[in-house]
Design a protein around this nucleic acid. Structure first.
Length: 299
DNA sequence: ATGGCAGGAGCATCCTGA
């Protein structure tokens, strides 16, 4: 089962990239963030194209800002929009949606930005993370939290730690809130797979930050131990962050403007089948051991 | 310290992002 998460920064703007990306990468489950449109508009925009590709969609959108979704072609059950007892700013925003896909409880999340340290919005961010933690803690063991967490887990996850001193995304309180998910047993599957690599998932549009690889790793796939143990591969799809064509080609008279990228890249994890056949009817041969770990150990 | 770039609302420019 291939799971991806992508902050698309307006799904309306990203359609010319999203559909070819689905066809090329063929993820089974996709968590999207920053849809920036309402549920009905999402359905009008993509409903038919997604159905043609075999995806069901759980959408929790709103006009203008935020908005999250889960696309799945391995089942989409028990959809929950928003966070139970979650805080608002001042009203609840469309920042979380959950569904059970292929036997795994999947959460697509867009964590509040925080804006300025110790601001109202920063406190809202920390409260929101606590509410998400409580929802995950109360849920099933096989769980994934995927999305834009707006926290760089460690100094190695920002291009220049000194540039972020006193800013959000790197404070001890934010990292502590992220640590609560690890305390529940969740793993950061990309960092587990690449312990010492310099990996970013977000690059500011300005000042050619992507071309210089000056970014941050703030889009994460967190998975319970039971799910993380099935991870065969985990990576960032940098290709999706690249500009499509040369400036010369894009600026030709009358030529349609080439669709630009989101400022975030997608993150992927490939999971082996569940040992007990959660994602399909798997009947072991009579002599096969019924308990214990999968024979197909992750490489 | 500020701007750089991009998107949405909506029609001038402001808010948000991180």
């Amino acid at each position: 089962m291939r799971v991806a998460t992508w902050n698309v920064n307006s799904v309306k703007q990203r359609v010319p990239r999203l559909l070819p990306w689905l066809d090329e990468r063929r993820p089974d489950v996709v968590c999207l963030q920053e849809l920036k449109l309402a549920d009905a508009a999402f359905d009008d925009l993509l409903g038919e194209e997604l159905a043609r590709r075999g995806y069901e969609a759980a959408v929790h959108g709103q006009t203008q800002w935020n908005g999250v979704a889960i696309l799945s072609r391995v089942g989409l059950e028990d959809v929950v929009k928003g966070l139970a007892d979650g805080p608002g700013f001042p009203d609840q925003e469309a920042r979380a949606v959950a569904a059970t896909c292929g036997g795994v409880r999947v959460h697509s999340v867009y964590v509040p930005n925080g804006r300025e340290v110790d601001s109202d919005h920063y406190r809202y961010k920390l409260e929101w993370l606590k509410a998400l933690r409580d929802v995950v803690a109360a849920g099933p063991e096989d769980v994934m939290v995927c999305g834009d967490v707006n926290i760089a887990p460690a100094d190695a996850d920002v291009y220049e730690p000194g540039a972020f001193e006193g800013h959000t995304h790197v404070t001890a309180a934010e990292r502590g809130a992220l640590g609560e998910f690890h305390a529940l047993g969740l793993r950061d599957v990309v960092r587990d797979r690449w312990p010492t690599e310099r990996i970013f998932t977000y690059w500011d549009y300005r000042a050619a930050m992507f071309q210089q690889n000056l970014g941050m790793r703030i889009d994460l796939i967190l998975a319970s131990g039971s799910v993380a143990a099935r991870a065969k591969a985990a990576w960032v799809d940098r290709q999706a962050r690249k500009s499509a064509g040369s400036k010369a080609a894009a600026s030709k008279d009358g030529a349609p403007k080439v669709a630009g990228p989101s400022d975030h890249a997608p993150v992927f994890v490939d999971l082996d089948e569940a040992p007990d056949g959660d994602i399909g009817p798997v009947v072991p041969p009579p002599s096969a051991p019924r308990s214990g770990k999968s024979v197909r150990a992750p490489r």
